[in-house]
Amino acid sequence: MNQPASAYFIEDRHDPNETHTLAVLVQNEPGVLARVIGLFSGRGYNIESLTVSETEAQKHLSRITIVTTGTPMVIEQIKHQLDRMIPVYRVVDMTLTRRSIERELAMVKVRGQGEHRVEALRLADAFRARVIDATTESFVFEITGNTDKINQFIDLMRPLGLVEVSRTGVAAIGRGPEGM
């Protein structure tokens, strides 16, 4: 049997890591984001992506969407640890519901001339990316989609003169008529 590296080591090492998207509904009050982020860093959890904004101003509610990775046991822990925080209303594992839509927005700056420029525009069209800024030697594209689509688009832009990328991180919502 493998000896665990430490008695504190809680993960079952044989379980593979999974990626989960969590939607966290919180009271929008000072420090709430610091609490959530502090939980992740303090307990050694991963944050792949984090998006936060107030969603219901009159009720002071914010929605935080976190993409995290870990073994099933760790993911379970993360949800419980989030849920027990005082200003947290609900934690929903969007990945487990299997009925959620995830979107991300990216702005991609590409610099180039001649054939590269034409190719970039052609690919942008195929990916339904919009041109939101242009000069004679550059474009800024706006692209929306799931993380994979955006990664793929960025990879394609790289040889065509990719300058920089700004991404929002993942936002997620459930399908169907029911709210969270």
Binding site: M1, N2, A7, F9
Partner: peptide, 27 residues
């Protein structure tokens, strides 16, 4: 309490009462 976790009480069914859900299945 547990010592080595992968050899902790290997043959038992475990019932855990706790007011804090994050204590369940943590270790």
């Amino acid at each position: 309490i547990t010592g080595r976790v992968d050899a902790f009480s290997p043959g038992s069914k475990k019932i855990h009462i706790d007011i804090d859900p994050s204590s369940i299945n943590k270790n």
